[in-house]
């Protein structure tokens, strides 16, 4: 999908903020819900192809 444009600015980095290589992990995402994707359409076909070949998005891009 195309990149979203966000017009509102990012906050200024708080004084004293530190992180290893400027990154700080906090918490993993919430547990997901299991649902069925409909096996229809071009984007699903790409998804199925990645899944069956265990390829990532970027491998798929190449």
């Amino acid at each position: 999908m195309a990149s979203t444009q966000v017009i509102l600015p990012l906050p200024i980095l708080p004084e004293g903020w530190t992180g290893e290589k400027d990154f700080r992990p906090f918490s993993s995402i919430s547990t997901a819900t299991s649902r069925n994707i409909e096996p229809v359409g071009p984007h699903f076909l790409a998804h199925a192809r990645r899944k069956r070949h265990q390829r990532t998005f970027s491998e798929d891009d190449r």
Binding site: V6, P11, T33, R35, N36, I37
Partner: peptide
């Protein structure tokens, strides 16, 4: 194979994931 539940049954995000931005007038993030 591709229409089999092995491929179609998939975890779906419970919540949106996003980034905090600052609104122009307020100090708190959006």
């Amino acid at each position: 194979q591709s229409t089999h539940p092995v491929v179609t049954a998939t975890p779906h995000l419970a919540y949106a994931i996003g980034v905090v931005a600052i609104s122009s007038d307020e100090k708190h993030g959006i």
